[in-house]
Design a protein around this nucleic acid. Structure first.
Length: 475
RNA sequence: GCCCCUCUAGCUCAAUUGGCAGAGCAACGGACUCUUAAUCCGCAGGUUCUGGGUUCGAGUCCCAGGGGGGGUACCA
């Protein structure tokens, strides 16, 4: 063997790691300073800090559970000089007795250890971490090990997804997976991404919503279904918009709007309790009380509260147009009264709604998949939960009548023909499914990324999406 | 799309009115047996995002381009 071969680093293929940092702190919390536990532990992780004192050396080792100190001595630690020569960021596995240092820090007193990976690239600043946003998003791997706050957000996201699944399963919902490739994009009003299937020689659309497939499943007899669906919308990027994002959609047979409200507020309150520790949370320095029940108010009431104007669907269209224009809406002559009212609401009211509130009674003109309101003509049975000035979701008592659904689709198709490229198209198979019979059904969609933002007090969707869409890197 | 802000060493940041491009940390070499962002000594580190321009002289001023951020439009 040459000298070269001797020094070439060959990582082990497998390492037996028996302990995690957080568990050691848990198990040895009562160990006194300067005492040994008599227990041997093997921990692995990244060397984050190194304090070399000559014949004694301390290192801060971090694993996915937290951090624990390594203590090494010239006398008691094998290859001591190599250990003190480690670089910040190197991965190691170390075995030794769990002790508490004289100064009180829980430590593994290293007897045996092994290098697992070298950090050949520069470490971020050990105090400031990495703050450059471009690097944080492009090199999330560096962000995650340099920045504690980033790790916490994604751990919270994972828990939110897991808790949501369990919450729904406990209520009798079944998780399903429906197609991402849609021959006809539907279930929402948005521009889709288009791709092409070679063998079938046909264009396919990446889904903008799973809605129509999920309701087909209710037709098929699955009475409570949900999907945590990645959806894709071909629109601009912003702090609140990533082209791919995650939506929870659920459908419950025999249920209506009121059931969807109850699920929404219970789910969000449950997640807040589990993730934040309270149903009263702080967002952007301001308090939000998510404790159920949430306020219910109609769209028209809220417009009156915030814009000081009383609107209704029967007003002369010219008057609605004038009110909209007065509030800074760029009025499209093709819009009907419902769209005008919605525009006024979005311009004047939505961002002002801090509280959790269920905004109800949306015009049916802008709700092509929702059932007619049981008592208010021209309105649909639809609500949006608004928290901290943002839509958290969207819910309806579903439209189940195939004849009415066909009329709504055709209405949309006319809008599309008139140039609205976000309008829906007629989905004949969906209509056929409705003809087999969809029972009364409540449906709910929740924007999970925004929910994670709310519960982690983050203000850009890029802070809650591990690898957000960015322009390609150059140079 | 449009408007505004921003880009300096591996990281975090300085550099007066245009006047020799610097510090801390990391890295590298060395000292140290209880440190906690260890400390101390030493050394090295640059296409100041790119390309033009103004000027005796540009990190700094001007123009164009690129990346990022924020706002705005569309949307969740």
């Amino acid at each position: 063997m040459s000298d070269d071969a001797d020094t070439t680093f060959r990582p082990p293929y497998r390492v037996e790691v028996t302990d995690r940092a957080a568990d050691l702190h848990e198990a040895h919390g009562d160990l006194a300073a300067g005492e040994g536990s008599g227990v041997t532990a093997t921990v692995a992780g990244r060397v984050m800090l190194l304090r070399d004192m000559g014949r004694l050396c301390f290192a801060t080792l971090r694993d996915s559970s937290g951090a624990v100190q390594l203590m090494a001595t010239a006398k008691g630690t094998e290859r001591y000089d190599e250990l003190t020569a480690l670089n910040l960021g190197d991965w190691v596995v170390a075995t030794g007795e769990v002790v508490r240092s004289k100064k009180g820090e829980l430590s593994v007193r290293v007897e045996r250890w092994q290098l697992l990976a070298k950090a050949r690239r520069g470490f971020g600043d050990k105090w400031h971490g990495i703050t450059d946003t471009d690097m944080r998003y492009r090199q999330r791997y560096a962000d995650l090990w340099a920045n504690e706050s980033s790790r916490r957000v994604f751990q919270a996201r994972s828990r939110i997804m897991s808790l949501t699944r369990r919450f729904l399963e406990d209520r009798g919902f079944m998780e399903v997976e429906t197609p991402v490739f849609h021959p006809i994009p539907g279930g929402a009003m948005a521009r889709p991404f288009v791709t092409h299937h070679n063998a079938l020689d046909m264009d396919l659309y990446l889904r903008i919503a799973p809605e129509l497939y999920l309701k087909r499943l209710v037709v098929g007899g699955f009475e409570r279904v949900f999907e945590i669906a990645r959806v894709f919308r071909n629109e601009g990027l912003s702090p609140r918009h990533n082209p791919e994002f995650t939506m929870l959609e659920l459908y419950q047979a025999y249920a209506d709007l009121s059931d969807m409200m109850e699920i929404t507020e219970q789910l969000v309150a449950h997640l807040a309790r589990e993730v934040v520790g309270s149903t009263v949370i702080t967002y952007g320095g301001r308090e939000v009380d998510l404790t159920p029940p949430w306020r219910r108010a109609t769209l028209l009431e809220l417009i009156e509260e915030h814009a000081g104007v009383r609107l209704d669907l029967d007003m002369p269209i010219d008057e609605l147009r004038r009110v909209a224009a007065d509030h800074g809406v760029e009025v499209d002559p093709a819009w009907g009264p419902g769209k005008l009212i919605l525009e006024v609401y979005e311009k004047t009211t939505e961002a002002e709604l801090w509280g959790p509130v269920f905004v109800t009674d949306y015009p049916k003109e802008v709700s092509p998949l929702a059932r007619d309101h049981r008592s208010k003509p021209g309105m649909a049975e639809r609500f949006e939960p608004i928290v901290a000035g943002r839509e958290l979701g969207n819910a309806f008592t579903e439209l189940t009548d195939p004849e009415e659904q066909r009329r709504r689709f055709e209405e949309q198709a006319r809008a599309k023909a008139a140039g609205d490229d976000e309008a829906m198209v007629v989905d004949e198979d969906y209509l056929r499914a409705l003809e087999y019979g969809l029972p009364p059904t409540g449906g709910l969609g929740i924007g999970m990324d925004r929910l994670v933002m709310l519960l982690t007090d983050t203000h850009s969707i890029r802070d809650v999406v591990l690898f957000p869409t960015l322009r390609p890197e150059v140079g």
